[in-house]
Nucleic acid binder design. Structure first.
Length: 199
DNA sequence: TGTGCGATGCTCT
DNA sequence: GAGCATCGCACAC
């Protein structure tokens, strides 16, 4: 079942840093997904941090522990997928065991497997392939089957990319009904990148 | 270029 | 049965 990744994933130690710091460190890294159809990858250009215990907008707010949030209580570097309507969203679990924090990957810049992405996102402009959390999972072939896996192993993993020249931050998107948590500037993106979900 | 809203399915109460 | 960390189309400007 388990295969060897085509590229060398970042070591598990990479994820061992504070959530907000990791959210910024992930920018510019390459997110890779291997399937039977081939390899697809893209540079992470936009992330959002969700800090369970004190963050009203997080699914794990107040340490709420359910079948869905369970993986956030595990060690950093695991995959947390969440189904939103008809879409799948992908998060990177962060922080220590029993501290349910995670980072949502909101947008990537297509790098490898462009033909495959086009067949998965037919009739769209290249920028529309991956400039949203639900879109990028579709383009890369990430599904809820990836829930709970490690980002250091096949078939879904993160490798070194490039160092962003400048990073911007601001309030998160799509969480208008969560009181003061809505204003936390925990959304990060690579300044000027055309693939972020909002310009 | 921006805002509004309906479709849609899964999880938790 | 309610509530959503969305998307894509329609319409206004």
């Amino acid at each position: 079942m388990s295969k060897k990744p085509a590229y060398e994933p970042l070591p598990i130690q990479f994820y061992n840093k504070p959530t907000l710091e990791l959210a910024k460190a992930l920018l510019g890294c390459l997110l890779v997904k291997e399937t039977d159809e081939g390899i697809c990858s893209g540079y992470i250009v936009e992330t959002e941090a969700y800090r369970g215990p004190h963050d009203r907008a997080a699914h794990s707010f107040g340490n709420r522990r359910t079948k869905r949030t369970e993986v956030m209580f595990a060690e950093a570097g695991r995959v947390y997928t969440y189904t939103m309507h008809t879409h799948t969203l992908i998060n990177v679990v962060s922080a220590d065991v029993n501290i349910p924090e995670a980072i949502l990957i909101r947008a990537v810049e297509p790098y490898e497997g462009l033909d495959l992405m086009e067949t998965r996102r037919p009739g769209r402009q290249p920028r529309e392939w991956t400039n949203g959390p639900g879109k990028l999972t579709k383009a890369l072939g990430i599904t809820s089957d990836d829930y709970g896996k490690l980002f250091t192993e096949w078939p879904v993993y993160i490798t070194a990319g490039y160092l962003p020249t400048h990073i911007s931050s601001g309030p998160r998107i799509g969480i208008d009904n969560t009181g003061e948590a809505r204003d936390y500037p925990w959304r990060y993106w690579i300044t000027g990148n055309t693939y972020v979900s909002r310009r």
